[in-house]
Amino acid sequence: MSIAGLTLVLLAAVCHATWNVFVKRINGGAELIWMFSVISVLIYLPLAIWIIVVQRPVFGPWQIGFMLGTVALHLGYFLLLQTGYRKDDLSLVYPTARATGPLLSTTFAVLVLGEIVTFQMALGAGIIIFAVLMLTGGFKMGVRNLSASLMFGVGAGMFIASYTVWDAYAVSVLLVPPLLMDYASNLGRVVVLAPVAHRRRALMWQHWAHHRTGVIVIAMFSPLAYILVLYALTFTPVAYVAPAREVSVILTVLAGSILLREGDLYERLGWASIALVGMILLVLG
């Protein structure tokens, strides 16, 4: 994995961890997704216009089709994950999604994009995925609706894998600018979630009154995190990027222990160290 690709992914991980901490503090739902998506569309509009005017990207049927597809895939991921969380099995849904996502992404990259995975890369990716799984709680027995929770977790992981490979093809082969790819996703969520936002407008005003800074931070860093990943995918194989992205989960969990006082700091540092070993193997693979 190149230094440039690793740098972009690590910067994306910091951005991802930052906006996830604020999401957790606000504890919103679909109305929060709509709010920060609207603000993201406004913040990144000048850059989107600049790219269209200066770079003059091609918007043929394939490019437009893939941009519409990413709207559906990302929205499906958000909605399915939220449905899984409402089952009160967060400790199973979240680690299942985060573990299966990069595993399936790498598998799809090999089968669909023809990427080659060495034994060292596979070992490093496996260590990262296992460490993230344990870091987020592992598979706890006795959880209610075990099969349903696993279904939601694996389903969310399928969406992660699908939009990762889908977007990688769009930015690396069809040459859709990464910022425009993510911009389309945000704009699509604004349109689709508008009816939900209208019904929950009172709750949105509460979020804005009490968490204005947090909402703006999410709106800035959520797109930036994925835009950096998309730029990395323009010259770095999915088999490298997908597992490396899990560093963001490690940072988020550690931030929860330190900033939100969730506890288990030393145990989480231990699993984070094991994930770092996997990262080194992956980078040198």
Rank of each mutant, 00 (worst) to 15 (best):
V192D: 12
V154H: 10
I39S: 03
L230T: 08
A197C: 02
I33A: 11
F36Q: 12
L282Y: 05
L79S: 05
P177I: 10
I160L: 11
L81W: 06
I216Q: 05
L259A: 12
V191F: 10
V117T: 12
T136D: 13
V238E: 09
S105G: 12
V9Q: 03
I227K: 01
V176C: 06
N145Q: 14
L80I: 15
V21K: 00
L32W: 10
L180K: 06
V54N: 13
R261G: 08
A244P: 02
L260V: 12
S2C: 02
V23W: 00
F159T: 01
V23C: 09
H74A: 05
H198E: 13
L260G: 08
V196C: 02
L180N: 06
I216S: 01
G285F: 12
G124Y: 06
S248D: 12
S185W: 09
T213S: 11
T106K: 00
G28Q: 05
L10G: 01
Q120G: 00
L150H: 07
P57T: 09
P223K: 08
G29K: 13
W208Q: 08
T100C: 01
G270D: 05
Y163M: 03
D89V: 13
V253C: 08
A131I: 10
H210C: 00
M279H: 02
L228S: 00
G5A: 13
L281M: 12
L276Y: 05
Y163Q: 01
A30S: 09
G124N: 08
L260D: 13
R189N: 09
S2I: 07
S185V: 14
G124Q: 10
T70D: 03
G155N: 09
R200K: 15
C15S: 14
I129F: 03
L90R: 11
T136G: 10
L104I: 13
E262C: 03
G76Y: 04
M67P: 01
E31M: 03
A239F: 02
Y44N: 08
G28L: 05
